[in-house]
Design a protein around this nucleic acid. Sequence first.
DNA 1: GCCGTTTTCGGCCCGACTGTTTTCAGTCG
Length: 544
Amino acid sequence: MDNETIGSTLDQVADLLEIEGASVFRVRAYRGAARTVSALASPVSTLPEKGPGSLEELPGIGKDLAGKIRELAETGELAMLHELKSRTPESLIHLLELPGLGPKRAKAIHEGLGIDTIEELEKAAREGRLRALKGVGPKLEAQILEGIAARAARGKRISLAEAEAQVEPIVARLREVPGVLRIEVAGSYRRRRDNVGDVDILVAADVSVAIGKKLIADPQTDKVLADGDTKTSVLLKSGLQVDLRVVPEETFGAAMHYFTGSKAHNIAIRTLGVRKKLKISEWGVFQEDKRLSGEREEDVFEAVGLAWVPPEIREDRGEIDAAREGKLPKLVERAELRGDFVAGKPDADELAAITSAWRAKGGAWLVVIGAPRSVIERAREHAGVELFAGRVVTIGEGGSIGASEEELAEVDVVIGEIDAANLAEKALTQALVAAVETGCLHVLARPFGAGKPRQFDVEAVAKACRERGVLLGLDARFLQGADGYARAVKEAGARLALTSHARNVEEVELLRYGLDQARRGWCEAKDVANTLSAGELRTFLARG
DNA sequence: GCCGTTTTCGGCCCGACTGTTTTCAGTCG
Ligand SMILES: Nc1nc2c(ncn2[C@H]2C[C@H](O)[C@@H](COP(=O)(O)OP(=O)(O)OP(=O)(O)O)O2)c(=O)[nH]1
Ligand SMILES: [Mg+2]
Ligand SMILES: [Mg+2]
């Protein structure tokens, strides 16, 4: 079973335990493990059984959870989950998707009314039977019916680019409201996750500004989910949820920290505070109810003895220890990028437009993939950036390279791509290592199958790449799991190549989404080949 | 279920909004 499926299975366990009324801390442990396993770059089977790097060494995973994760990885089954399902119907998990319906009410609905499914719930709500339950009245009943009706319209997670497109005009309108002192998008958007579940906006303003009402009146707003003094949530017409938080300017820093998250990072920071007898919340840092600070985001970190942590790595995956020890990475920045890999299909005019746009951005070189040499030669004359000829070659199942030596000699950069659909994890790893060891490749593309990243032993492959001077490609068009991939590559001492595959001027912009994921993967300039100068790249290509 | 410059037992982040409630539980961020 792959890591993502193990993660969602552990989340199912957490849901069922929660419905059963298990300890919230036990539930949290399962959710934490789910999150940790989903983020692993390589399959569980590649981790050592014991000692450094083993499952049990991962924070929040002890003997018990490690055993369950191994059981899932090896057999695809979990005995405990079967037992849970025999006690509590699995279908109850779907009730939790309805807004306002959590584990307590799901349990009450199941036990009090014998309801197991959304269909039964809808029938009961229509007949007014839900209000027989303690704590449920006509309003909740109506809300549940509405939730069932609106189920399909409520959006799923969307890409960061899509979220940017939707939210930028809204933020622009809110920014113009008189009395808005500061406005920033926080949450997973600020942490630059490749997909976001909602958009979280923080505003510094007086309550009298009633900024929440302005969001409610926005042309894109469809439905109001909640509306209080400091917090408003709406659903846009697109189905995207927007959460708005309003605070006075003097608590903007602490509020930014809270609203940026992640949840796991917040809990870790607040726990450090508790040990120092401090209380940390969106309202500031407090000692015995006396407010110490909170105007700046740094205040929160300083209060617990940490350096300011870049939002991209606030995931409780080691950044807190690093911030304490002064070992935070100096994350690679946009201004440091000098090269990109673009698609070769464009005609000479399009290529000229791309090269001049890239030069205008401060770029120094481009690898043009798949263009005829003649096109590149001609483009070179007016390019103003150095052009390299690139070619994609197919890697066979045994790691063979699908091109002749003469063909390879015609280009400057050889990019190996494997058709991974039919290979198991181990065979895939072996094929990739073998391909790298032919010495023919300059870049190894990230393997995908059926539109999803394929699992393999990233550490083993990245180490082979490091030895052979091969870059690991990170395609900015396909970023699922790219942050974990980047981190594993960096930790193996290898180097990434971010590739936009731009076919036109607009798509050159895509590279920054790749950069975001490299940053989430703790990458510094030295970990990303796009920061090399043209001369340095040339030397690298010559395996110098 | 995990974990330990307090601890191997007994804690585990903190607050806003809603509905149903005569004082707070549930859900969500
Ligand atoms: N302290 C604390 N903060 C939380 C909790 N839940 C959420 N937050 C904070 C951190 C989150 O990043 C921020 C926004 O919440 P969201 O539910 O929108 O999560 P986030 O944006 O991280 O991910 P998303 O893509 O929306 O699923 O609020 C919590 O239980 N405790
Ligand atoms: Mg969010
Ligand atoms: Mg949110």
